[in-house]
Design a protein around this nucleic acid. Sequence first.
DNA 1: AGAAAATATATGACTTGTCACGAATTATTT
DNA 2: AAATAATTCGTGACAAGTCATATATTTTCT
Lengths: 169, 169
Amino acid sequence: MSKPTERDIARIRARQAREDFNIFSRLPAVYAASRSQGQKFLQHGGGLSIVEWRTLWDLCEVGPMTIRDLAAIQRADHSLLSRALPEMRRKGFVTMRRDAEDGRQMIVEIAEAGRAAYETAAPVMARRRAALRAVFSEEEVNQFVGYLDRLEDFLRTPIDEFLKEDTAE
Amino acid sequence: MSKPTERDIARIRARQAREDFNIFSRLPAVYAASRSQGQKFLQHGGGLSIVEWRTLWDLCEVGPMTIRDLAAIQRADHSLLSRALPEMRRKGFVTMRRDAEDGRQMIVEIAEAGRAAYETAAPVMARRRAALRAVFSEEEVNQFVGYLDRLEDFLRTPIDEFLKEDTAE
DNA sequence: AGAAAATATATGACTTGTCACGAATTATTT
DNA sequence: AAATAATTCGTGACAAGTCATATATTTTCT
């Protein structure tokens, strides 16, 4: 009975219900849903990709910056930007120039087509944030973000610390 | 001044701080960190991939089931499993057979090598969950999951509902 | 000044996830 | 019984991430 050969629907349901409380297993689904919804909104706002949107938004809000800066703001790996930017330049969304003072850095700046694309997408994305605010109060967002902070902190702890201890389960 | 040509570090910092409270922008990073940590744990537990681990775990806990069932438990698209399973069969982790009663379905069952791989990985992964419990109390996990539920609900709402309303920002 | 270390970017290889569509099978309707 | 609809799975095409490593440049140390 601990190893039935037939599909057991009750057990499947039970497993599903239990996994609802497994944070590790919830995260991918929530993130995927967020990405998917974001892409749909962007589709209605001119067809930018998520990376493009985030980058144009950052550049419009704060002005020119390096690839590293963009990655830091977006909490993403720099390679993601490094790969996306040449195509954005080709589209006329941004300009890129090597920093005169520090030859390692690349300074990215918004260009005309980029500002236009941003202005098309921005109102739609503002709607999205407004819709979220209708669901979560400011206080709740703060609490939620507090949990995310703590979780991220946990997730970035080197794993040796957990594996060394002698207490399991 | 609203469009400086030089990199403005104070503004970059400010933007970063503001984005800390943007749930949409936090999610990818938190998820990426979780995936990355999970992969590292699995590396110490025999080298399974995340999809492999989830699948073996589910199959060991509930017995044989269809691809659809696995996708539902994992809250993932069926295509992800559909693609991963043939390789798992090749490794001797699972067996697959077409359901005799419903010829559309594929019944997946744990196999010997799969159980062995599971048993190697399981203690390490149990450590991980234990470590998380040291950081979040049961009550907190429930609250956190509550937020995730509400967020996921929001994220799966058809976007027309948000775009039709006349109130922006 | 020269050597060593650190930092910024680019790039290859990989994983996890989506969506859309076609083919096969089963269920429902007329 | 035939036609229509729904479901399951497979697969192609893509997006968004990661990590590791190489290269160029700057910084720091001796």
